[in-house]
Simulated scan of single mutants.
Amino acid sequence: MASSLEITSKGQGSIEVASGQTVKLECHFTLAPEDLAPLDIEWSLLASDNQKEDKVVILYSGDRAFEDYPVMKGRVHFNMADPKNGDASINLTGLRPSDTGTYQCKVKKAPGIRSRKILLTVMVKPSRPRCYAEGPTEQGKDVVLRCVCKEGTNPLQYTWEKISDSKLLPASAVLDPVGGTMNVRNASTSVSGTYRCKATNLVGNEECILHVNITPPPNTAGIIAGAIIAVLLILIIIAIILFCCCRARQRKKYEKEICNEIREDVPPPKSRVSTARSFTSVGSHRSSLGSMTPSNLHEYALKPQYDKIPSSEDFDRPPSHTPLAPPVLPAPAAAPRMAGPNLSRMGGIPVMIPAQNRDGSIV
């Protein structure tokens, strides 16, 4: 038996919406008296692969709406509180790129069953593009202007326009609306100015501004000469530093060798006579003088001085040199005989000398 249930919506079968926005998927229907079973309305997201299962988005059954399905939980609602009146449309909020797909509205009231499919494409609006000049902007060279968006659903279209001076693009400019480039060959100073690039897709557009300044070519010869001079100065400074370091190292090494060198021709230092020995010698000398008599004074004068400290001339004399004989001195004159009172005035101390025989024994 034929059913009179019909879906009357004749809207678009494909919708493009920007990410983050809200969209309404329409599904209107009419019932007939022959449709006696309870009304069921089911919205589902069809799987792109036939081997996968369709996902239920929202359901109306037994005069009650069920909206807690995990696919779009909290972001889907029926357009009318009571869909029995013939409006099974739904509203999707906070759209994401992952919501893109084919949605099916199925209305069942036995024995009538009807369905409708809608393709939803959630697109990302172009982000603010970045405009820049690639390479040097010098006169006589090719200048490439680029415009790039980090985000945005394809297809993206890029357009360039000049917004300063004559507002006309250079005659030698070659545009690439898909890649977003503008190539200006053999650029001249007239290319200088302000340009605007606009990125557009089906859900929006964004733009950026670029200031271009074409400069004369640099003085290559002057740059090369300056670079050579700078390198030479650096080399000279390095050479001076190395020379100073070498001189300082040689001087330090020479001073170290001088300190460690042993001189064979330098005499040893003179020995110091201790104070105790000096006092002992002086005391014994005085005792000897005090015990002298006129008879042995002459013998004391002829005794060699053994406590005399050798001079530096004795050390300077070569070992192989034969010592010279001491000079012969004339015989000293007989010392005058002094009387006892005179010796006492001179500090002499009278000493009694014991008598000795010829063998030297004391008598």
Score class of each variant (00 low, 15 high):
A225W: 13
I362M: 04
L59E: 15
P304M: 10
A325C: 04
N342G: 12
P318C: 02
N186G: 11
P38L: 08
L202R: 08
T293Q: 09
L39Q: 03
N260D: 07
K73S: 14
L59I: 05
Y158V: 00
V107R: 03
Q21T: 14
P319K: 15
T30C: 08
A335V: 13
A65D: 11
R263S: 03
R249Y: 04
H211T: 14
F315E: 15
D142C: 09
K303I: 12
A276H: 12
A325E: 10
N85S: 11
Y195Q: 00
I224D: 03
V191C: 02
A239L: 12
C245V: 14
A248W: 00
A325R: 10
Q51V: 00
K256E: 03
E255A: 14
L31F: 01
F29K: 03
V76S: 00
I163M: 07
A173H: 03
N91A: 05
C245Y: 08
P70E: 08
G180T: 07
L242M: 13
H285Y: 11
I7W: 00
Q356G: 02
A47K: 12
H285I: 09
S89R: 01
A65M: 12
D99P: 01
D165E: 15
D54M: 06
Y195F: 11
L120N: 10
P350W: 09
P323G: 10
S190C: 05
Y254R: 15
T275R: 09
G112L: 01
E264A: 06
D68N: 06
P310G: 10
K303A: 04
A225N: 10
A65Q: 12
G347M: 04
K106T: 14
T102V: 15
N357T: 04
A171F: 14
C208E: 09
M338Y: 10
T8K: 01
E16S: 08
T280Q: 13
R263C: 00
N186C: 08
T22M: 14
L92I: 09
D68M: 02
K252E: 01
S271H: 13
E53F: 07
G347A: 01
I349N: 09
K10T: 08
L25N: 04
D359G: 05
F29A: 01
K125C: 11
E207N: 13
T102I: 13
K84N: 00
I240H: 01
M346K: 01
A248S: 13
I90A: 05
A88V: 04
